[in-house]
Computed example of a mutant assay.
Amino acid sequence: MRSMLSICILFLFFSCEETQKEKKSPQKTFSTVEITPIFNDSVSIRAIAITPENNLVYGGNNTTIGHYNAKTNQHTNLLKGKVPDSLNVSFRAVAHVNNTTFGISIVNPALLYKISKDGKVELVYKETHDKVFYDAIAFWNAKEGIAMGDPTDDCISIIITRDGGNTWRKVSCEELPKAKEGEAAFAASNTNIAIVGDETWIATGGKASRILYSADKGNTWTVFETPIVQGIETTGMYSIDFYDANNGFAIGGDYSKADIKEANKIRTSDGGKTWQLVAENQHPGYRSCVQYVPNSDAKALVAVGFKGIDYSNDAGNTWKHLSDEGFYTLKFINDSTAYAAGKNRIAKLLFQ
């Protein structure tokens, strides 16, 4: 009886296991991308963020922090009439959290605006320095957020809010790893910062290209080396994304030599402590943004740049070129649809 009972239990176990395997949805693979323009104007856009309603906020030149309503197909410049027309600043970093939009401008002075749901615009941070240049912004939660930029002293610039964006504090260089000579970052796609839970990864670039890492929402920091191409001002990581706390991917290269494919794609499986080159000397070359496809078990990635759109379904080992249409940045709405933005344009992308 005991042996028969054991056989029955084993049979039920493996039957359930097989049933679970059968129920697991197969991973989608893409072979084409359908590109639908939703915005054409004289605004260069390098920063986008998705709202909970699957609308879009974006940052561009000509003092533009825009909002796109997908249902009405309407665009609104949230700063229009709220700041002087003569300001003429560019935004390459935007975020949306808790019905509030944030945008920080490049060059001197750095201006960080908070825009409430009712349209109220507040200047919540200003930094004046000859070297100031902010590259990316992201939030851990509704109260806590972070923006990063080029060094003004001997460390990467990092500012943090703990009160929903009302006030921001610049982190002292005494609390951060010292920057190497020529180490900065690229305001290419607002994807220099990756966040999973409390963990944060920041990609630097230039003469040195490393990972700044915090396990505790920016309270403490360490730094990891990478094998990506570096050594001159135009080289290094331009974009980073993490699928979960272990699996991450970064892409870049040299935008001044965009066809070069050497050492421009790297991957980690241990939370960023170590990185490996992948698809070495293989397509694509320089790209300004990379994002994991949702629900892909860290296998599917899409990269965009001014040379086109590329896709990998094997964690970045091999890539398929989907389109020559150029974009600077990309954000997924779901596992087959994304928004992408670039020079004078925004489009909705449907991957099939």
Rank of each mutant, 00 (worst) to 15 (best):
I333M: 12
V302P: 00
R287F: 02
D259V: 10
F327P: 02
A258I: 12
S323G: 11
G271Y: 05
C289R: 01
G252Q: 02
N313M: 11
Y255I: 09
T268P: 05
G253P: 05
R287A: 11
D314K: 03
S312M: 05
K299E: 13
A300E: 11
F306G: 10
I266Q: 03
K273I: 15
Y292P: 01
P284H: 04
G271P: 05
G305N: 04
V278W: 04
I266V: 13
Q291S: 12
L277K: 12
G326L: 10
W319L: 08
Y328T: 05
Q276G: 09
D335G: 03
D314C: 06
G252F: 00
D259P: 00
F332Y: 12
K320A: 11
D335I: 03
K261P: 02
Y292N: 01
Q282R: 10
D335M: 01
T268A: 06
Y328P: 01
P284V: 05
A258D: 13
D297S: 15
A279T: 07
K331D: 14
N264F: 01
C289F: 03
V278E: 02
F332M: 03
D335A: 06
A300F: 00
G305C: 08
L277S: 08
N264E: 04
D335S: 12
T329E: 05
I260G: 06
A258Q: 11
I309Y: 06
R267L: 12
K257S: 13
V302A: 07
S288R: 04
I309Q: 05
G271L: 08
K261A: 10
S288C: 10
E280I: 11
N295E: 15
S256D: 14
A263V: 05
N317T: 14
E280W: 03
K257F: 13
Y286K: 08
V293R: 01
D310A: 14
I260K: 14
L301E: 06
A263F: 08
N334K: 04
V302K: 04
N281F: 07
N317K: 15
E280H: 14
I333R: 01
V278R: 01
E280T: 05
D324V: 11
E325G: 05
R267H: 10
D254I: 10
V304E: 03
K331L: 08
E262T: 15
E262I: 11
V293I: 13
H321V: 12
S269N: 12
